[in-house]
Design a protein around this nucleic acid. Sequence first.
DNA 1: ATCGATATGTGATGTTATTACATTAGTCAA
DNA 2: TTGACTAATGTAATAACATCACATATCGAT
Lengths: 134, 134
Amino acid sequence: MTSTQELTKNQALVFNALARAEGPLSAYTILDQLRGEGFRAPLQVYRALDKLLDYGMIHRLESINAFVACSHPHNHSHSHGMTAFAICEKCGQVSEFSDEVITGRVREWTSENGFRQSKTTIEIRGVCANCAAA
Amino acid sequence: MTSTQELTKNQALVFNALARAEGPLSAYTILDQLRGEGFRAPLQVYRALDKLLDYGMIHRLESINAFVACSHPHNHSHSHGMTAFAICEKCGQVSEFSDEVITGRVREWTSENGFRQSKTTIEIRGVCANCAAA
DNA sequence: ATCGATATGTGATGTTATTACATTAGTCAA
DNA sequence: TTGACTAATGTAATAACATCACATATCGAT
Ligand SMILES: [Zn+2]
Ligand SMILES: [Zn+2]
Ligand SMILES: [Zn+2]
Ligand SMILES: [Zn+2]
């Protein structure tokens, strides 16, 4: 499930909406953008989003109830490790990065505490370099 | 603003609801618990929550839209640094911890990228040791 | 052709959070 | 004490986010 070709119609529409967006989009923003394509109900968006999350093609930003296309170009097959997001509160731009040290420390804590980790959210809110300069 | 004595009536009611709870509570759960005390509208809860967040007495768990009392006993005056939460999806128990290494790595990334950090969310979802054993 | 699995369409409902406006209670200086 | 200011509160309405329930369609394998 690695290329946009293998997606269903709705999944492809939702993914493309996210891929061409400058920043994160809410489910309802996506819905509105796709009304022209025949979308009428939230579930059409949420179902596609769920699949795209499964496939690792998009991420959900918990702190702003929004979704972004994964910035790792192609090859989403390997569910990539712990990812952190820096979210600009001025312009909405999102930077995605992985850090082995952070990943390692989280794993240490979980194994020391017998915690069976399933998903980890790391989101840094603030102002990006561009917006800070302006 | 360090003791529950200095809180307003509504703030104290909301804080006590969180403090005596086993795990995180949603705003509407708090509202329902406080109907007996005269609470009638969401805003009574949200306004108190906002203040308690300001004072550093509680935390918001972004990934589950819920709130928990800070587990650092007393002295919330110093807004404590970057905090991580391990949230059990079975029993709801939350463990709060700080990690210098993670804090340091996040700061490195932000300073390298000129990102002016304001708030950082670290939430580990999974199953706690107790629940994993059961 | 039939069946099962996956995807879709649609309305209603549930959950979380904010806006807008009116009122009340504390603070402090004139 | 009054007036003026700020913080806190009460309330209804609405907005924003997400899911449930049920019907229909599409597709591949037998
Ligand atoms: Zn990614
Ligand atoms: Zn920016
Ligand atoms: Zn804390
Ligand atoms: Zn547990």
